[in-house]
Amino acid sequence: MRRALRHPSFLIGASLSAVIVFIALVSLVWTPHDPGQMRILSRLKPPDASFWLGTDQFGRDIASMLMVGARNALLVGLVAVGIGFTFGSVLGMLAARFEGSLLDDVVMRALDFVFAFPAVLTAILILTLFGPGLVNAVLAIGLFNIPVFARQARGATLQVMTRDFIRAARLAGCGTASILVRHVVPNILGLMIVQASTQFALAILAEAGLSYLGIGTQPPNPSWGRMLNDAQTFLARAPLLAIFPGMAIALSVLAFNLLGDGLRDIIDPRLKER
């Protein structure tokens, strides 16, 4: 714990992430303006006292849209990483427990197959086939998270399974399920959380990318990626329009990456014994 408080990337990552989460939570109950309200007379306004970050081409408040966009980005990250984490961890642990069996081969080769496709490109394909929208985008991103978590879980589980305390648990009469739940999960959880934090950043980026292309979050739901796309047309007249959502994306990706890096150092398995 003390090491965590002294670790710069953990500190910066955790505080930034906390700010983003806080903003997203606040947007549930309060935003400076209604993010969907258009004001023909106040189009493309620069930042002022009323519209902190200015308005877009429809006169909508940028600050409010960014706040609600944060909610979207976090929700996507949470659900997509949740899908990958849950299915990936279970599959990886089972593959490791039955290492070398048909189950192991089938599961890991199937996941290699998913892994072999460029994620965003295939997400575009999926969204074109099943229709654009936030739900499908989340499912597509989640699908590509499964192999990442499965590989990590399999490797970590294999390592834990060689330890004597697993043998001791078998001697105690514990079955496979109880060994996995009571001994393997607690010992690989730290690594998995580190991975989750990094994947979270990637999921936010992927959602922004898909929305930028117009196949992620659909209007009128504000999304950072789509705001970026909208801003493109007015880049010469109102460059700030692109800068704010761009910064939001960059900062949140940076935040969760730093958090992941920091956690990785803190939960380093080489230091675990101490």
Binding site: R163, D164, F165, A168, L171, R182, P186, N187, E273
Partner: peptide, 15 residues
């Protein structure tokens, strides 16, 4: 029952 060589490895560090 069995006693293992390495007392650091035979007890679950998280238990």
């Amino acid at each position: 029952q069995m006693i293992f060589q390495d007392p650091f490895g035979s007890l679950d560090p998280r238990m």
